[in-house]
Every structure is written in C-alpha cells, then in structure tokens.
C-alpha cells in the first residue's frame, strides 16, 4: 500500500454529528441529521432518521424503512464489496457479521485506507454474512466487550440451556429477552437449527423485523404473536420479547415465566442477577475480547481508533500489541442493549 501523505485524523474527523470523512463530504453513522450519511447497520443508535441522503447495504436500507418509513431520506443501496467514488474518496462496504445487512465502511483517500467497522462479531450467525477481514492503515473498532473477562461461549451450549430448562419446567413459559433487531432473529434461527420446531411466540414489537428477515430469505419457522395465545397455550413454550417487557405488565399474561435474557452481559453473574434474570444466555452480536484482539491483529493496521465501550482496556491491550491506539470519544452510541 502506498504511503499516506496526510495524517488520517486530518481527513476522517470527529464532529458533533459523528465521524466525518471530509474530502468525501459524508458522515458515517451520524448521531444527528446530516446531508449525506453512510450507515453501517440498522441499530437505532447507528441508523437514525432525518438525513437527506443515506447510503447503506440493501439489507440495512430495508431495516431502516421498516423502522422509520419514509423518514429515512433519499437512499442509495450499495452491495458488499462494490467500490464507488464519492467526491474523490473510494468507498465500499464489507460484511461485518453483526446483524442482517451490517457492513464495515471502507474509505480510501490518497493511498490511505480507513476501515470503520461499526459493530461486528467474528463467529457464525445464520442470519447474516460473516465478517471479512480488510487490511487497512486505520481500523476503527467498537469495544463493547473490551475487557478480558468477556469470552462468549459457543452459542450451541447456550441454546441447549433453554431446551434443557424446557424439559425441566414443561409447565412454565420461557421468556427470552432479546434486542428486536438481530438478536431476536438469530436466537430463533439458532433454535431452529438445533431442531426446535414448535411455534415460537413473539412480542408485537418484534413482529415487523421478523417478517422482514423472513422476506429477505432467513428461515424462522412458525412464529406467532404471544398476545393472541391463551395462558394455557404458552405453557412450556418459548416466548421472545424486548428485554424491558419481562418486567412490564405485558409479561403478566405468561404462565409462571422463567426469565431469560440473551446478551453478552449475561457473562457477569452480578449483572444478570441485578436484572432478575433466572436463565442467563451468553449470546452476543458483538466481538468478545479474543475476537477484538484477533481482529486488531488480522487487519494489520498500525493505528486503532476505539469508538465506544470499555475503551481504556482495549487501547491498553492494543498498545501492548505495538499499535498506536486512541479513543474517539464519540457520543450517542449505546452499549447496553446487546
């Protein structure tokens, strides 16, 4: 790769609206409405309504349309690995493995390549394309699980926990708290792959995105609305809802529910206990500590910028690996919902 003439931070800058690629005149995942936005994936803190012009993968645009209707502005769909020129900046999208449609934004200018990875994970997910390693000069990474205590165990063991509990408590509903986009569909797909073919009951807030996933070709099997089932029908069944609903009036319709939550945070017992979770499932759509380090090593970037999460530990570890690393101090991204 040719040697860069300019320091990367002089043309990829942190602004109040978010990360700005100055020569290309576009923002990546802006947190406030802007003229031109490149959106890495459909989660609400990365994909917001109100921009004039949005560029994203077809999957991400479909998700944004489902969530915001026409409020997303003019759209431009860009497939994975199909480079275009934007005001002299070469831009392309590479799969990030986070949720359906999720992408890393790769920008090149004057011989310097910056990869803004958005949120990502490295393990298998039946609902989206796997992460691709793009060698670069600057790698912009999240650090949601940026502490060495976070090792996500294999998904199959976590799914087995649910199935085992169902045989142990066949009279109780099993309520799994999941984030509406990505986690929900992944948990359903993993259950299906493990051979679970009963109807799966869902909270109304999850219905639209599940329907979209199915439309886009992700097999989710027989899904039904929990609100349309009787208390008796829900005995021994799996019910999915947004995490907050388990503590809400909505959950009173369920027969003696066991509350599960599928999240990387469930690794820490105290955190699971504080939330009153009886069946913690460590299933995450973010890279765990080992995956973060593996990725930083794999992209071979000399510089690592950390967007959000537990930055200090990841920056320290990147430093130990001989990388220049710094925190971007971007505001507006959440890490509580995975």
């Amino acid at each position: 790769m040719p040697i860069a003439h300019q320091k990367p931070e002089s043309w990829v800058r942190v602004t109040p609206q978010g990360l700005y690629v100055e020569p290309g005149q576009f923002f990546i995942d802006p947190t406030r409405p802007v003229e031109r936005a490149v959106v890495t994936h459909g989660h609400a803190d990365h994909a917001r309504p109100g921009n004039k012009h949005v560029l994203a993968t077809p999957g991400t645009l479909a998700i944004m349309r489902t969530r915001y209707g026409d409020g997303i502005g003019a759209t431009q769909a860009l497939d994975y690995n199909a480079p275009i020129q934007v005001n002299g900046v070469r831009l392309w999208l590479a799969p990030a493995g986070h949720v359906l449609g999720s992408a890393q934004a790769v920008v090149e200018w004057q011989g310097c390549r910056v990869v803004v990875s958005g949120d990502y994970k490295r393990r298998f997910d039946p609902t989206c394309a796997p992460f691709e390693v793009v060698p670069c000069d600057v790698f912009v990474t999240e650090a949601t699980f940026g502490l060495p205590v976070f090792h996500h165990p294999p998904d199959s063991g976590e799914i087995d926990k649910v199935l085992r509990s169902l045989t142990l408590f066949p009279e109780r509903a099993h309520l799994i708290g999941v984030y509406a986009l990505g986690k929900c569909q992944r948990v359903i797909a993993l259950l299906r792959r493990s051979g679970y073919d009963q109807p799966i009951y869902i909270h109304g807030a999850l219905a639209a995105l599940c329907a979209l996933y199915q439309q886009l070709g992700v097999e989710l099997g027989d899904l039904r609305l929990a609100s349309e089932a009787s208390k008796d029908e829900l005995r021994g069944q799996i019910v999915l809802s947004p995490p907050a609903a388990s503590a809400d009036r909505w959950s009173r319709r369920l027969p003696d529910p066991i509350t599960a939550v599928a999240s990387g945070w469930m690794r820490v017992r105290q955190r699971a206990r504080q939330r009153g979770v009886e069946l913690p499932l460590v299933i995450s759509d973010h890279a765990d500590w080992d995956e973060l380090l593996q990725t930083i090593d794999g992209v071979a970037a000399s510089e690592i910028w950390v967007t959000h999460g537990r930055e200090e530990a990841l920056i320290h570890a990147a430093g130990l690996m001989g990388k220049r690393a710094r925190a971007l101090a971007l505001v507006g991204y959440e890490d509580d919902e995975d």
Binding site: L147, P148, V149, F150, H151, R267, V268, R269, Q270, R310, E312, A313, H316, A317
Partner: peptide, 18 residues
Amino acid sequence: LLGWSYDYVGDFAETIAL
C-alpha cells in the same frame, strides 16, 4: 487489565474465573 476487570465485575472470584 486485571484491575479494570475487577472494577467492572465487582466480585473477586468471578473476575479471576472469567
């Protein structure tokens, strides 16, 4: 890294275990 992890987890045995 051990220090930050302990601050986050809050329980000594659990920090080391993880």
